[in-house]
Nucleic acid binder design. Structure first.
Ligand SMILES: [Mn+2]
Ligand SMILES: [Mn+2]
Ligand SMILES: [Mn+2]
Ligand SMILES: [Mn+2]
Lengths: 239, 239
DNA sequence: TCTGCAGATTAGGCTAATCTAATCTGGACG
DNA sequence: CGTCCAGATTAGATTAGCCTAATCTGCAGA
């Protein structure tokens, strides 16, 4: 009964859908997404963004403050979350049911997300058991448009000595994803922060329970998003 | 090593892919596909077809004889068969793995066929066991671009007394497909032609082995494509 | 052979989405 | 307080696809 996208509305184009997703990602932390950031994310020229921004604000999907940036309207946010749900369910389906590696699914989902029906997405979600996270640990929005907001720390920021659970891998870059996989750094892994060198130096972590160590430069450490695990013997994590 | 589509070529647009498929289907029997038949099949206006025909013949995908029609070039035929392979594998995958009914898969495949990668299609084909027929009995072209050409008779044309195997259902119309399903008329079924009334009257068939009878008007009888089964006791059909 | 017309094409126009080149502007900084 | 410039926007062009209205043409029938 909530006022989602009316079925009568003309469907959004592939471009529009990708713009809305980009704006969602860029404005999820701070307030506004800038023209040049959108342009960089979508690999188009800045004037193309200005043109699209005009159309999107005319149709009420975004708010535009000239020379400052854009934000999603409630309607635009719903549309963006719908695309993100599709994208993440597709990624998970490809890895779980069709034996894709986690570094290959993004490109495929990027195209399919625009072509699948809601029906197909819900069937996939059903056959996956209504999953909550995609292969990279990103939360899957519900069909109703809710998304989990976890506050996570990167391994680059976590305190030395902290015990962490790796939750999300914040990149779609194939080479980096493959490297993380070889290092056993995938969502769900437990670890402790053993050391950090000064002046933006590398962080050393120890995997739990194996105790294996990994040394991560700042670039990679910033991509690994973790939740803190209370350090208590024989305790149960509450998730 | 066969001279298929070079990877360097710019990818074909969704429209172009649908035009090539339409031309393939329309010219598969006779020689030329007419402008108005293409327009009807794609639900566009005839001048839109004339415009596309010009572009397609400039890029060498079709041959155009003005005021007569178009035919696929070898390159266009390869592209069309590639799309048909995608379409039919998608249809089968949706029915087999995601519990779609055979009357719902066409619309979904019509969009997805343009968005999937070759990689994904081959993974689906692999998980289906390299299938040869789609849910409607239509042959699936090979990845190399070969397609089975069976010569089939419609139930409207078959001789009274003939023993037949139902092979293909020549429609994508949901209502008709659902009706056929309720009547047990799906590919693989054996039947004999029991009677045909004159003046384009209905054909009565008997299902084998149940003996159940069905009476089919000419419109529906023409949609059911069959191969003849040699009438011999205890014999094995050679397929 | 001539005529008419169904079907094909051309003419002209529109929208979405992109680009490059030119211009504008908000805010940082001297 | 004024300048400057990175970043944003406007101006103008292009391409693919689609449309309607006007025109053309092959061929069937008189
Ligand atoms: Mn996309
Ligand atoms: Mn992901
Ligand atoms: Mn299609
Ligand atoms: Mn089919």
């Amino acid at each position: 009964m909530h006022a989602t996208l009316r079925p009568g509305d003309p469907p959004l184009s592939r471009s529009v859908e990708d713009y809305l997703k980009a704006i969602y990602h860029l404005s999820s932390q701070g307030g506004f997404a800038s023209t040049s950031d959108i342009a960089a994310m979508l690999e188009v020229a800045p004037p193309s963004v200005s043109g699209m921004v005009k159309r999107l604000s005319e149709t009420g999907l975004i708010e535009h403050v000239p020379y400052r940036g854009v934000q999603l309207s409630p309607q635009g946010r719903r549309a963006a979350l719908r695309m993100i749900r599709r994208h993440r369910i597709l990624e998970l389906y490809l890895t779980q049911q069709l034996d894709y590696d986690w570094d290959g699914v993004h490109a495929e989902a990027e195209r399919l997300e625009h072509a699948v029906s809601d029906e197909l997405i819900e069937r996939m979600a059903g056959s996956l058991g209504q999953p909550r996270y995609d292969p990279h640990g990103d939360p899957i929005p519900t069909a109703a448009g809710e998304i989990e907001e976890a506050d996570l720390v990167t391994i680059a920021d976590a305190a030395v000595g902290a015990k962490l659970e790796l939750r999300q891998v914040g990149t779609q870059d194939s080479a980096r994803l493959r490297y993380f996989a070889t290092q056993g750094l995938t969502p769900g892994v437990l670890l402790t922060v053993a050391d950090r060198q000064p002046f933006n130096g590398p962080t050393t972590i120890a995997l739990v329970p194996s105790g294996d160590r990994r040394v991560l430069g700042r670039e990679l450490a910033r991509l690994l998003l973790c939740s803190e695990v209370p350090v208590q013997e024989h305790g149960h994590a509450d998730r």
